[in-house]
Design a protein around this nucleic acid. Sequence first.
DNA 1: GTCTATAGGAGGATAGAC
DNA 2: GTCTATCCTCCTATAGAC
Lengths: 226, 226
Amino acid sequence: MPQIADDSRAGADTAARILDASEWLFAEHGFEGTSMRMITTRAAVNLASVNYHFGSKEALFQEVFRRRLAELNRLRLEALNRMEAESDGTALKPSQVLEGFFGPPLEMAADTEHGGHTFMRLLGRTYTEPAEFVRKFMAIEYAEVVERYTVALYAALPDVPKAEIVWRLHFMMGAVSYAISGIDALALLTGHFDDDPALLKPRLTAFLLGGLRAPLPEPLKVSAGK
Amino acid sequence: MPQIADDSRAGADTAARILDASEWLFAEHGFEGTSMRMITTRAAVNLASVNYHFGSKEALFQEVFRRRLAELNRLRLEALNRMEAESDGTALKPSQVLEGFFGPPLEMAADTEHGGHTFMRLLGRTYTEPAEFVRKFMAIEYAEVVERYTVALYAALPDVPKAEIVWRLHFMMGAVSYAISGIDALALLTGHFDDDPALLKPRLTAFLLGGLRAPLPEPLKVSAGK
DNA sequence: GTCTATAGGAGGATAGAC
DNA sequence: GTCTATCCTCCTATAGAC
């Protein structure tokens, strides 16, 4: 089952063309809002080929996620492994951990040539769509990465209670997701956005670090440790 | 056109029952994933009544948003007007501005009895769904509130450049939206969430304030003002 | 105002020729 | 492996009885 992304050979790979077309359409219109006919028209393949190659519309949706999420989480684990190997057992800096975790999705979102940007928009919108089979699927794909990075954050921020770190990781994922997928929504709300997109990452990182290291709110100051 | 929310009178109001039913279904399955039959079945009304009362499925969707967003933004403007009247012209504290802006949606999200929680889930998911008619609609509903609060934040944080504040407001809206609509997603990722939901607000506020007041990243430190 | 019945079309999936 | 033709379900919207 070849999975070539370019179309150097006449007729490219049918399955790959279907994946690319459906990725864009799912991002644009959602799962329910995208029909098989829209997909096969955009991919310039026959209507029956989706069921032939993937079995069903739902299975196609899962495959769109699998190929990108696997890559994303591979990059994250590689970054963490590399940083930990170079640190000789001392805890990483919070900014390093954030860079390892949020760097890959931000770079993928900046890649408009190979569909990375499209996929990140899709991922952001899928987070808020409680489709059962997608959530179970993501829980499995994310489990190891979240576990590893959570532990790294505990070590990087010994003064912040662990429960607080889990919450703040959640808040950060929300901020990043919106920063990626909601930029045009913000442009609508505020009117203008003539800024350099390359500045998004340092802007966002500064914001996240500030939130991650914020002093505890009063209702939680009672007991420090744990 | 009466709009009574309870069902104290036999048969309640048909239009109100349709609104409540569709609000929940749109939150659960999205616009495209919700059919008129699902709505009329859940509301226990006739299939034709949606078109009679609202004209179309799309118009119904807009009305679901209109009634809640109007309330939400009314509360936000009221809070800001009150705080500014009490401050005798001096700038508000950042925490006050955040409380005015994010307090109403967080309280609405905590209200599980009158559908507020349901609507906030719907709002969160709609942010990432680029349906044209919804975005234009939200831009109009939000315009005044965002403008007023942005100005208040400029005054509350004179040391942070204005462009940075706009970005950080965006990041904050993302974090809040996820905190509200993605809690079960986080539970899936991390495994456990046995915490007091009343602690969400102080936790989130502390995080937001930290991010809002974070030091500028190096690439932006060149010029301070503006 | 509220219902039944149905028009008219789009949806996912598949059988079977090539 | 790829295509055409088609099945059958489901959709939104409306016409017209009550």
